[in-house]
């Protein structure tokens, strides 16, 4: 990730100086959240941020987006992508999309480890388990790739819904916003929707145009930051791959 970050940073700094414009450094996750809030008009949601690199449950409190729970190893998207590779699912248009389509035809639930640890989740054990199960069961014709896709989705999404619900209960929140690349999975949205309905809460989600990483989300977060008076000095505009969601002071919300 270092190379793309430094490339964009250098171009942005140069352009900012050439045009005499202020520069703003934006946290990637904050970009997702602000884009989601703009598009869905969610006011103060509990946020589930699920992508290939991150899995976090976030809620806003006192000028910070606070992380209530997260993965303790790999991200949920990473788990899905790597599983797709093991059973040789196509990357076109994306492994996650193809798993979702295959899962619709799954008939049998293969039991997998369910690893919620307090407010956190873990996916690496599930991945190892299903890798082994896939090798054994597929060759012995005990299940189909569709069954495995179905079982994996049901298990990991149930875990995500559980920790999201717990964060909502903790904050007394009645809104959920799903952001990040995995957020365009309709089965995840459906499961989250059921949970929300049971609690009388409202679910906000977007389609792949806004879920998947994009430049507009960075611009939107940057715009909110700029409107509230923030700018990043050039000498402070160094890049980092370790920039946690709760490090940013949210100056644009009450």
């Amino acid at each position: 990730m270092g190379a793309p970050l430094v490339t964009v940073a250098i171009v942005a700094r140069t352009v900012a100086q050439l045009w005499g414009k202020p520069l703003l450094g934006v946290n990637h996750c904050i970009g997702h959240i602000e884009m989601g809030r703009l598009i869905t008009k969610a006011n103060n949601p509990t946020v589930l941020y699920v992508s290939g690199g991150n899995t976090q449950v976030i809620a806003y409190s006192q000028r910070r987006y606070r992380i209530f729970g997260e993965t303790i190893d790999i991200a949920v998207g990473n788990c899905l992508d790597r599983f797709a590779r093991v059973i040789k699912i196509s990357n076109d248009p994306s492994p996650g999309y193809n798993i979702e389509q295959l899962a619709k035809r799954g008939k049998r639930y293969v039991e997998l480890p369910y690893t919620v640890k307090g407010m956190d989740v873990s996916f690496s054990g599930i991945l190892s388990y299903i890798e082994e199960a896939a090798n054994k069961m597929l060759s012995a014709d005990q299940c189909t790739p569709e069954d495995l896709c179905f079982s994996l989705q049901e298990t990991v999404f149930a875990m995500l819904v559980e920790i999201t619900e717990r964060a909502m209960a903790h904050c007394g929140s009645q809104e959920v916003l799903i952001v990040g690349g995995v957020g365009c999975n309709l089965r995840l949205q459906e499961m989250m929707g059921v949970m929300c309905q049971e609690r009388g809460a409202k679910l906000f989600a977007t389609n792949e145009r806004f879920c998947i990483d994009n430049g507009a989300m960075i611009a939107q977060a940057g715009w909110e930051m700029f409107r509230s008076g923030q700018v990043t000095q050039l000498e402070d505009s160094w890049i980092t791959q370790r920039y946690r969601t709760d490090e940013v002071e949210v100056t644009w919300r009450d």
Binding site: A9, I10, R13, T14, Q17, L234, E235, D236, S237, W238
Partner: peptide, 11 residues
């Protein structure tokens, strides 16, 4: 000067 400011922040 622009090049200097663009290249120096990253350590």
């Amino acid at each position: 000067t622009i090049a200097l400011s663009s290249l120096s922040p990253d350590r």
